[in-house]
Write a protein that binds this DNA or RNA. Structure first.
Lengths: 210, 210
DNA sequence: CCTGGCCCCTGACAAATGTCACGGCCGGGA
DNA sequence: TCCCGGCCGTGACATTTGTCAGGGGCCAGG
C-alpha cells in the first residue's frame, strides 16, 4: 500500500463538527490519504467539490440543507469522476438501496471498526464497491417500499404531528381520504398506530426524499 | 501547554466504533493526551476504568447496556478521582442537568468544533467545569421535568407504541387512569397528541432512567 | 385538630382515529 | 374490445383516544 503515487484526495461531509474533525484526523494518519475539504451541510458538497476536486467524497446521510442521498446524486452529476462513500449512523435498509441508486460506490455504517475505513476508501477509489454485508442482507429482507406514492406523502406529512384535519388541509384532500391512506400504510407496515407506522417506515428509510 | 509532565490518560466510551476510533485519533494528536482505553457499551465503563485508571473519561449518552448518565454516576462512585466529560449527539436540555447531577465535570455536544475538544479535556482534568453556553441557557429555559412520577412512567411505557389497554395491563391500572395520566402529560408538555407529548418529553430528556 | 394542596385512581362523555365498502380512473393483457 | 388489477378519492361506522369532574390518601402549615 501507499507507494510513491499521489495521495487520494478526500472530501468529508458530516453535520457534526466533532465527528467530522475526528474522521479527518483518523484518515490523515494514512500516508496515502489527504483530506482536502470539509463541509457541514449537504448543499455545500457540490460547490466545495468543484473547488477542491476530491477523488472520493465521504458523505453522511443525515445533514441539513440536502440529505446525503440527494447530495450523492448531485455530486455524481456534477463531477462524475469523484466517487462517493456514504458513511452513516443508521443502518436503515432503505438508505443503502437509495444510496446505490443515487450512484454511491460504497456504504458504511458508523459502527464498523475504525481501521476498516481507510481500506474502504481505497477500495472505492480503486473502482470497487464497498457494502456492509449484514446490512446488504437486511436490505434484501426489507425489500423496496410497499407504500404507494400518496401513502408515503401522507405519512411524511404526518411526521409534523398534526391532526387528520390538518393533513387534509395541507394536502387538499378529504379527511376520509387521509384516513384511508393512513390506514393502508398502517396495514402495510404491520403497525397498529399511525405513530407506529411512522416509526417502521422511517426505520426502513421509506420516507426519504424531501 | 503540554510541558514535560505525564500525559492525561483518557477513556473513550461511544457505541459507534468508527466515531470512537476517530476521536482517539483526534485526541492522540495532542502530545499531552493519551488514550488508554476504549469501550462500546456503558456497562463496560467501570470495569475498564478499574483496569486502566484513566484521568478523564469521555462518555457518550446513547449507549447499550447502560446510558452515559448512569455510567457517569457509577464511575464517579467507583473511581472518584476520575473526571467525566459527557460528549453527546443530542443537546437535550435535560441531559445536561442529569449529567451534572450524576457528577459529570463537563458536557459537550458533537457539533462543537473539533479543536475545542482537547481544551475541554484539559479544563476538565484541571478541575474546571465545561459547559456549552447555549445549551446551558436552554436547560434553564426548559427547567426540570414538570411530569409527575406516574406520568413519566406511563409515558415511558407508551414508547412501545401499544394501545391504552396494553399500557393498563402492563402497569396494572385502569384504562381510565392511564388515559388520565397521558392527558396530564399532554397538557404539561403543551402537545396535542400522545405521540407529540412523547417527542417533547424525549427531546427534553424527561424520560431518562430505565 | 382542620385545611389546602398534590398526587393517584376511576368512570362517563366528547373528539379524534382507524376500518370498511364503494365508485372512478387508468394501463395491461386476453 | 372487454376485463382485471392497482391506485386514488370519499363517506359511514366502530374503536380508540383525550377531557372532565370527582373521590380517596397523604403531608405540611396554620
Amino acid at each position: 500500500m501507499s507507494g510513491g503515487s499521489a495521495p487520494i484526495r478526500l472530501l468529508l461531509a458530516d453535520d457534526q463538527a466533532l465527528v467530522r474533525g475526528a474522521l479527518a484526523a483518523l484518515l490523515s494518519l494514512e500516508e496515502d490519504l489527504t483530506v482536502v475539504a470539509e463541509v457541514g451541510r449537504g448543499d455545500e458538497v457540490v460547490p466545495e467539490a468543484r473547488r477542491s476536486t476530491p477523488d472520493v467524497a465521504l458523505l453522511d446521510v443525515e445533514m441539513p440543507g440536502l440529505d446525503g442521498i440527494a447530495a450523492t446524486a448531485a455530486l455524481r452529476a456534477a463531477l462524475p469522476t469523484c466517487r462517493v462513500l456514504v458513511v452513516t449512523t443508521f443502518g436503515r435498509p432503505g438508505y443503502l438501496r437509495r444510496a446505490m441508486e443515487a450512484g454511491a460506490s460504497g456504504f458504511v455504517v458508523k459502527d464498523t471498526p475504525a481501521r476498516q475505513l481507510a481500506d474502504a476508501v481505497r477500495r472505492v477509489h480503486a473502482g470497487l464497491r464497498v457494502v456492509d454485508p449484514t446490512l446488504a442482507a437486511e436490505t434484501l429482507a426489507a425489500g423496496v417500499s410497499p407504500l404507494t406514492e400518496r401513502e408515503t406523502e401522507v405519512l411524511r406529512t404526518a411526521r409534523g404531528g398534526g391532526t387528520v384535519a390538518d393533513l387534509a388541509r395541507a394536502l387538499h384532500l378529504s379527511e376520509g381520504t387521509v384516513r384511508n391512506h393512513l390506514s393502508a400504510a398502517i396495514g402495510k407496515t404491520g403497525a397498529r398506530n399511525r405513530a407506529d407506522a411512522l416509526r417502521v417506515a422511517e426505520q426502513n428509510g421509506w420516507l426519504l426524499g424531501e
